[in-house]
Design a protein around this nucleic acid. Structure first.
Lengths: 222, 222
DNA sequence: TAGATTGTTAATCGATTAACAATC
DNA sequence: TAGATTGTTAATCGATTAACAATC
């Protein structure tokens, strides 16, 4: 029985950034990279990088740094980027279409196999080489193709209904772009990408700045 | 001199979710809403909600809950959603176009006034009613329209160069969709929306599940 | 050797949760 | 009054940072 040293969430979010940095170092022909350099790429101190990587194992060598080839391979393996992962996109609106055409996903092992929508005008069309199917076909095709990931890009009003369909079809992870908190059974993982909420926090920062510059009477700056 | 009781980052990220929930309650004609209900919408316990809202002020009434009308107005004001905020999108690719057409932004006070690209085929076209300009025009137009927000949707390789342009033009906040850690002066705020990194963490969870189900020999589940 | 850099330990910092008196 | 629900305090939990012996 393997000990699961469950990894801190913020750390997990930084690993892909280190991964990209070490890929770049590899391309540049560098044999080693330091926690310092990795930290710069992620905007965190070197100590944070060493702490993060120590969750995976003893990957570096004191006095030298991290061997790029090995670190890249280890992170790739650890993050499961080598495995193929099938995904569907439900909601063939602007966002769904943009994600279907996003070139960066394939490099991470994500294969978007189909889109789904209930708009008859969209059904049967092709987006970035992927066909758009009616929602009714979802369960059948998800099971047939062994799809694990559901990318949800429908309006909030339909989000929960679509999530229910996904769960019923056996999808394991829902990447939710709808501004809505989905209710799902505990074995299903939801990752929220709430752009509207993100915008609201940006709005907050701008408002604070305005208030500050009003107060101090200056034009700009901190 | 007003005391700045700087608000915890995770709390700030939850406020928009409460805001949306209270809007819904308003639409349903409810006069009050409890921390319990707000918490459900955000997937956090009621105590967390009360703690979060207490950062803004004493907004509720013991034994009753939060008055919807007042809470909605307070959150809207606090998050600065009432102010108009001008934004540009740089990078008229799939993602940029999708964001330009995203209907949810206007409700939060965001006005996307233009797109920029260096592809001559795109320049002069119109996306969701907004014109696409050449990058060379950016500084001039940003200053003319008093744009504060730059939405960056170019490939990583051009991200830093575009960010430099934005900073030079006087943009205050960069909403960065490129998988790249931008270097900017301290008075400029960068909000990263790193979809590729997000995907990598999803990939990790799927890989763990596979390992688990392999170990235990079962087909699915936790 | 001297200089660089790791992994880990301990100290600090910050956020979440539980509990409860105060209030309606 | 009894039941509901707040705001706040204290306890817990988790993540970041600093420091340093160990290593190359």
């Amino acid at each position: 029985m393997r000990r699961r040293a469950r990894i801190p969430k913020p750390c997990l979010a930084r690993l892909p950034v280190y991964y990209r940095r070490v890929l770049r170092a590899l391309e540049e022909g560098k044999k080693v990279i330091s926690s310092q350099e990795l930290g710069q790429a992620a905007g965190v101190p070197a100590a944070q990088v060493r702490k993060d990587l120590s969750h995976i194992g003893e990957l570096g060598r004191a006095g030298i740094g991290y061997e790029t080839q090995m670190l890249a391979a280890t992170l790739q393996e650890f993050l499961g980027l080598t495995n193929d992962k099938e995904a569907i996109i439900v909601g063939a609106g602007n966002l769904g279409r943009a994600l279907a055409a996003y070139p960066g996903f394939e490099r991470y092992g994500l294969r978007i196999v189909a889109l789904f929508d209930h708009n008859p005008n969209k059904i049967g069309t092709t987006i970035a080489g992927k066909k758009v199917y009616p929602l009714e076909k979802m369960e059948e095709l998800v099971r047939q193709w062994n799809v694990q990931i559901g990318i949800l890009t429908v309006p909030s009003s339909q989000a929960q209904a679509v999530a229910d369909l996904m769960v019923q079809a056996g999808i394991e992870v829902i990447w939710n772009f709808a501004p809505f908190c989905l209710q799902v059974p505990p074995h299903v993982l939801v990752e929220n990408e709430d752009l509207a909420a993100r915008l609201a926090t940006i709005s907050y920062h701008i408002a604070r700045r305005r208030a500050l510059s009003q107060l101090s009477g200056v034009q700009s700056s901190d």
